[in-house]
Simulated assay, not measured.
Amino acid sequence: MSGLQEIAVYDSNQLYGQVGKYRFLQFSNEAIQGAIDLKNPGRIVMEYPRAIIHLMEWNDRSFENVFMIGHGIGTIAGHYSDKRFTIAEINEKVVELSKAYFHYRSDDTVIGDGRQILCDQAPAAFDYIVVDAFTKEGTPYHFTTLEFFQLTREKLTASGAVIMNLMGKIKNDKLINAIYTTFREVYPYTKAFSLPAEDAADIRNIIVMGSSKAIDYESRVMAGFFEIELAEGHRMLDKE
């Protein structure tokens, strides 16, 4: 237990039905936040970071500066030794565990609230902003509002993009629809992607991306994610 967030590290011989030797970082409510293949630590085993990496590389092959909210085990930042990452993580214990058990080596993490840390960054400083922050209630509210998305756009270069990893349903999910509708008020070009599931009511990873320029991708490299259309929702604003 760290603060109000229960954190577990454990090993398993299975990942999504694949037999091997894996290690997981898991928060409360059984949400897996990161996983590595202990026999091949450089292999990215979870789908959503593979899809995010593809979107980043496909839309800007020469990107240099990335701001991330949510450290996890540091999968995306650890994939790039030649890029400059600034990672905001609210829970210092998450960073400690990523270094102790998941081979994370960089000292690029700032401990604190991601929105406040982003506020302190220079305008137009980043090619990408990646939001991958979760508590047991889901994505923290203050990372889903109109004011937050306006802040992200201020901190991006003119051709930069924000990418969010969310958890929800692709149909009749009022929160997901509201986040995406609010997101689209700020970014003229937006796309949403989902992992497949047995039923439309199943919770799964949903990635949303927004930019001031057109967004492209290669379907076969999206780690199983496919583009989806989300319904209109209400606008999300900072609480009084």
Rank of each mutant, 00 (worst) to 15 (best):
E96V: 04
K99C: 01
K99G: 04
K99I: 02
Y101P: 05
Y101T: 01
R105T: 14
S106M: 05
D107P: 02
D107T: 05
D107E: 12
D108W: 11
D108E: 11
V110W: 04
V110F: 09
I111D: 11
G112C: 03
G112H: 08
D113Q: 01
D113F: 12
D113N: 13
G114T: 02
G114M: 06
G114P: 07
G114Q: 11
I117D: 01
I117S: 05
I117P: 03
L118G: 04
C119Y: 01
C119E: 13
C119S: 07
D120E: 15
F126E: 07
D127W: 11
I129T: 02
V130S: 02
V131E: 08
D132E: 10
A133F: 13
T139M: 14
P140C: 06
Y141P: 00
H142I: 02
F143N: 01
T145M: 06
L146Y: 15
L146F: 15
L146R: 12
F149Q: 01
Q150H: 10
E154V: 06
K155Y: 12
T157D: 00
S159R: 15
V162W: 08
I163Q: 11
M164E: 09
M164K: 10
G168R: 11
G168H: 11
K169E: 14
I170W: 06
I170P: 11
I170G: 06
